[in-house]
Design a protein around this nucleic acid. Structure first.
Lengths: 383, 383
DNA sequence: TTGAAAGCGATACCAC
DNA sequence: GTGGTATCGCTTTCAA
């Protein structure tokens, strides 16, 4: 049924010397058998042994010649290489990997928006995280495999993954459990300490939130509206915790507007609720990722002048923040650095063997722009 | 050096019955050997033969039991499954793939921004294309491997790819040539007709451009500014060709402002140049992907009222278009459909064997919104 | 210097 | 029904 390459008159290497000519008599398809031979077939791939026969050498020699290993005479090496090149030989990657015992493949899945998978790719945070992960992986000789979150776990079981990144895992995420149970190292952006094979990259959302609130207070804010998702995501939970605590400590009023569903539209609606009521705040901190220019536009629609009537800070990775009018202060969690740190952890495990479950912390970055500076720009300290 | 799993006292299956107990005496590391044994090692993976020995059955039987193939008694099947489960057995994906003759992996590379790789992932078009491709691939039982475009070809040679998607290939792209030469089917968004293993998905940019210009003319435009990249990309070239031809035919003035470098900032600068001069156009068609809200904001800055003084159409996939003020008319090339069509072509080749080089065409979609309707919204026909 | 043979781990024949 | 055996294509050890 699922039978792989089948060759007519195929010879084992042992017999290659006696009966076979330079090339075997006939090949069947490399791809699946086509019933009735309707479609043309892809040319069969040239194997190492084909090259060996053609060159009148052994598999071993060709392999060594091509890989630059072993001690071969220059002539033999050149001859082997030339023959391989002429025949269009390409080593079978799967076979090499099997031999090597690894796949050099790292899976990448985003879990937060499991129910609304199309959403996450629209968010700069995930986009940048994905892209940076792919880069980092490649720099370490690995490649990233996208694991769309809407697929059942079994769909991935057949993938030869050396390790996986699970972004925004759910609490006790079955996916994480499963990979861990399979002995596949997992890196997440949530602490999973103590689990064999579990690694994580952390962001101190608590400190970051306090940093933003401090900044706003320093700029004169006395009534801060916060827009945050009420998903179970760590960052949201930590942000709210920090906000409550900070508010109590400092005696500055903060209020929270929740965003229940993912996506720009609901988030924007929450922003409007937060600033649209009769009880007008003098500062706004949008934790949910929304387009910063849209936020200031909304503020403008509601009669605010940013930053005079309303200080605005967005937790966002959107490059457009600096193009808004006024440019918007952003809190970045630095996805590129998170990605690099996560991949690094994984690669270390993969390349150097098992080490204790551990994590790394990536700092956030508050980029202060005009939207949160009541004093003229020059007075603010960037960074 | 790169030695794979090495087991102390490893037994071949043939000898399994005589000397070996239920489990082999000792295992070395599954991962690389750790010099000095400093770090703990990952537990060795359980192999089919380990399960077989433990269950007192043969590899074949366990395999059949687990895969639901063969004719096995219910007891044996249950016993095999139970043992496998208890031992935490996970089949080695690489081995299966080698046996199966395919990897179920599709590579995905974006070529347009080879020199500025960080740019493309910021653009909704590529983001959506990537995501939709991953989805489509997975729906067909394949997974997508991200191939960052800044890496040299050799980095990818080790990946067991069944096929690849090359987005925005350069003319005679060496990467495409190489994959084709290796016998790997390639799908691109540019016509590659006649090349064995070459498939493509097309967009009729010419017709799309004319459609936009017709729409603008219909709304009263008499002097249309076009902002387009002067990269060699097909879509840009076709758009400019169509524009020149349309302009000549209709006797309506059009002028082009080029964008030399990729990214939002240069594009936005080009928009400003296009509308900022003393010679003010009455319509603007932005072919380069820029944030639509940013475009109308720029227009406003330059004293235009959209759509009264300036009709605006953007070729963009940005969801924010409808949130701009006014909502912006967009020309979408429908990346999700392009992705689906491309993956479908590939999967057909992979699953059904070689068929002639061929392509598919995906229509564009003009979503008319207030920004390009001089007449009140109700008068416009959506779609 | 070169090559035969033994695997990597799993699947599918084909006898028993 | 069950299990031995040959492969998938390649790398590496080890003997010649």
């Amino acid at each position: 049924m699922d039978e792989p390459q089948r060759r007519v008159g195929h010879q084992t290497e042992a017999r290659s010397g006696d009966a076979a000519g330079p090339r075997p008599p006939a090949y069947a398809a490399t791809r699946k058998h086509t019933p009735g031979g309707r479609a043309q077939q892809l040319a069969p791939r040239v194997r190492l042994i084909d090259v060996a026969r053609e060159a009148g050498l052994s598999k071993t020699t060709i392999s060594a010649a091509l890989n630059g290993t072993g001690r071969l005479s220059d002539e033999v090496r050149a001859h082997a290489r030339e023959t391989a090149w002429r025949m269009g030989y390409r080593p079978n990657a799967t076979a090499r990997l099997l031999r090597a015992g690894h796949s050099k493949l790292i899976g990448f899945a985003v879990r937060e928006y499991v129910e609304a998978p199309w959403v996450y790719m629209e968010l700069p945070y995930f986009t940048q995280l994905t892209n940076a992960s792919a880069r980092a992986a490649l720099e370490h000789g690995h490649a990233l495999v996208l694991l769309p979150n809407h697929a059942p776990r079994e769909e991935w079981a057949d993938l030869p993954l050396d390790a996986v990144c699970i972004v925004d895992p759910m609490p006790d995420d079955p996916l994480v459990e499963d990979f861990l149970a399979a002995g596949t190292p997992v890196v997440t952006d949530r602490r999973v300490e103590g689990r064999r094979g579990g690694y994580w990259v952390e962001t101190d959302y608590h400190a970051a939130t306090r940093g933003v609130l401090d900044h706003l207070a320093e700029q004169g804010a006395r009534d801060i509206a916060i827009v945050a998702p009420d998903s179970g995501a760590v960052y949201a939970r930590d942000a709210l915790l920090a906000q409550a605590q900070w508010s109590a400590e400092r005696g500055i009023r903060t209020r929270v507007e929740n965003v229940a569903t993912p996506g720009y539209t609901p988030a924007l609606a929450a922003v409007e609720r937060a600033i649209g009521g009769p009880d007008r705040p003098d500062a706004l901190f949008v934790v949910t990722e929304v387009s910063p220019p849209m936020v200031v536009a909304a503020a403008r629609r509601h009669g605010y002048t940013v930053p005079d009537d309303l200080l605005v800070v967005c937790a966002s990775e959107d490059a457009l923040a600096e193009h808004a009018e006024p440019p918007v202060t952003t809190l970045s969690t630095q996805p590129a650095r998170i990605a690099a740190a996560g991949i690094k952890l994984l690669v270390e495990v993969l390349d150097d063997g098992y080490t204790e479950s551990r994590g790394a912390e990536v700092p956030t970055r508050l980029v202060i722009r005009a939207s949160s500076l009541r004093t003229p720009l020059s007075a603010g300290r960037p960074g």
